[in-house]
Write a protein that binds this DNA or RNA. Sequence first.
DNA 1: GCTTACACTAAACAAACGTTTGATTGAGAT
DNA 2: ATCTCAATCAAACGTTTGTTTAGTGTAAGC
Lengths: 208, 208
Amino acid sequence: MSTREKILNTAEALFAEKGYEGVSVRDITGKAGCNVASVNYHFGSKKGLYREVFLVKMAERSRKLQSLFWKKIGDSANPPPEQIIRSLSEAFLRSPFSEKERMIHHKLMAREAERPSEVFDEFHKKVLMPFFRSLFLMLEPHMPRRIKREQKMLYLMSIFAQIIHFNLARTMITKVTGQTYDERYIDDLIEHIVRFSLKGICGGDGRK
Amino acid sequence: MSTREKILNTAEALFAEKGYEGVSVRDITGKAGCNVASVNYHFGSKKGLYREVFLVKMAERSRKLQSLFWKKIGDSANPPPEQIIRSLSEAFLRSPFSEKERMIHHKLMAREAERPSEVFDEFHKKVLMPFFRSLFLMLEPHMPRRIKREQKMLYLMSIFAQIIHFNLARTMITKVTGQTYDERYIDDLIEHIVRFSLKGICGGDGRK
DNA sequence: GCTTACACTAAACAAACGTTTGATTGAGAT
DNA sequence: ATCTCAATCAAACGTTTGTTTAGTGTAAGC
């Protein structure tokens, strides 16, 4: 692996763990095993490194997540809502990355959702918004009819709220429920999100 | 207001906005209009200041929020689930603080939920856990019967996931839905959370 | 063999950081 | 009037910060 790549990987892990200001250039280069000046040589500045982390690594992973979702959906034109929610939960909670990498991804994303940097605007327009739009179009027919479009959007937000929360507040959930985040428990989480959200949207009991 | 209080208030606003490392002691004292040394004089260190912010201001507000919730619940021994969820949403999304103060509270809380500091453990045990426990006991009778206790806990987590998310990802939700966070929209949010969660838990349609 | 271009490094840079110091203030007690 | 004590201050402390500089090694082109 090149120095550039080593810096990129180390940086995104540290940024996710401690936030932008919580990490120094020396922390990164120290852990990556290279010189302090490498960051400025390859990325111009610390900010440039963060920008590269987000625009390259995050966007790349987002695209992978989204394409995995579409693969799970298959080629059916009108998938049932359960399949949509389940594919979404599975794609974002289980695959296709390592536990660690998934955590990095969601932490960085949550940081930006809460306090967007200059980078996030571009990312939001190009990557997130189109995905939201097509998700909404698929789910809308199954929602209560009489409510307004803006309120229907909230149903989609509620699903994402759970996915994000169950990915992020891991330490807290472990404390409250006493469960460890192993594969089996993640299956339970997915099953729960699907059932809860399906009932929430359609009013059915979430079972066949 | 005493210097001590001015520092405390300024500090919590800045910590919430930019995180612990994102704020310098000079930022705080500058905005509070006092000397740099005041922080170390009154709180021993920057860390001591953060600790005080969390253990005093946050705990105080949490207790206010919780007592507001119980006031909304009233003295009925077995409140209907709709009342529980609505009281919870209203307490945490609308009152009894200013928009700004509520934001501060939830941002700091989310930061700790994601990456707990040494302070959080105590806070969790004394303030959060007892509240969760009594909420769970009230909601449990209305949940599906056949599932395990740990899975039932997730229903409670899903409600909080939404409350936290709709408080935090404000900028993102504004971008996606195009709605501004005024009083009317917050009413819509509360109504949505109640209806979505009620159906999610009980399977009913969320209406009378 | 000389040049060019690139990846990398040790050392130094000014600025900002959290913290400490020593002096000054002003109100209350003796 | 003198002493006391907590509060506040300007100034300086030693580190750590992001960044720059000047130099080294190396492989390819001519």
